[in-house]
Nucleic acid binder design. Structure first.
Ligand code: SF4
Ligand code: SF4
Lengths: 145, 145
DNA sequence: TAGTTTTGGGACAAAATTGTCTTAAATATA
DNA sequence: TATATTTAAGACAATTTTGTCCCAAAACTA
């Protein structure tokens, strides 16, 4: 059950880490994040470039450079990130993979899957990076093995 | 959002097709299924070999040969198939992919994901091939684009 | 027995995903 | 200006997934 690609998983973990560093101002370097979270630096860099190109992050080069969220963490939701990294059709994907689906000509698992997808979309729509970051800051949850 | 691999999707569609052919006795050839459902014959054959090796199907070679469900379709549940094709740890997979998870040291999305996984597992545990096959037989649902 | 049908098994190829590396560009600081 | 730091970009390799193909084995039919 691979819901998210590795690239998305790494990107999300990294963003939540950034959101968890509430006090910090300025840029956080990708090197720091990849070290703390044990993620390949180059792989994470590529994912972050995508996020930068799509307005989730802004970047700054040179000493003390790095990346920063373009908006306050409580205004960035999981759906925003997933749309960039997995595509805007993320929540339209089908369990049985039949093209051109809908309620008109559904497959036999449609009813269940529609509800499951909506629950997931609802959760992603309403969960902000700030919310997840707080859980980490408060030591109750972890981002790394 | 790729919950199931192509191999599993094809296998499931094919099994539901078999279940939908209520009246038929004897073996159904893989060639017929692959043609009707527009699935690569060789790819489906490999998936079916896995299912045969794990007791979901029994096969018979030669003219009028093919495959058949080893049990009545109402005794074969989605979980059974998914366990064979995706692994028995299918429902243990994590949204953020942290190893060694559990309730002790959860990641920040654990609460939601645990509930979502349980809902899915519950559905898969209780949905039989017969149930899905009936929906297809009754013309209300489709298996092919 | 010979020929046909069908699954079994494995080699192989193509494509997608994941991961690594090198070089360039931008920026800061000494 | 020279050097160090850091992201940008893209080439490249490794791995996994997906898909194709060939031939053998089993079973039926004539
Ligand atoms: S009918 Fe519904 S569940 Fe089935 S493949 Fe289409 S959208 Fe997905
Ligand atoms: S803590 Fe829960 S949701 Fe998070 S990775 Fe582990 S099992 Fe999955």
């Amino acid at each position: 059950m691979r819901v998210l690609s590795k690239a998305t998983v790494y990107g999300l973990r990294a963003l939540v880490y950034m959101a968890s560093e509430r006090e910090r101002t300025g840029y956080v370097s990708i090197g720091e994040i990849s070290e703390r979270l044990n993620i390949s630096f180059h792989f994470l860099t590529k994912t972050f470039q995508t996020l930068t190109q799509h307005g989730i992050l802004e970047s700054y080069r040179g000493p003390n450079g790095g990346v920063a969220l373009t908006k306050p963490a409580d205004q960035l939701f999981l759906t925003d990130i997933v749309h960039v990294l997995e595509g805007v059709d993320f929540f339209d994907k089908c369990l049985l993979g039949l093209p051109g689906c809908g309620t008109f000509a559904p497959c036999p698992v449609h009813d269940f899957w529609k509800a499951a997808k909506e629950a997931m979309k609802n959760e992603f729509d309403n969960t902000s990076l700030a919310e997840l970051g707080e859980k980490v800051t408060d030591e109750r949850f972890r981002l790394v093995a």
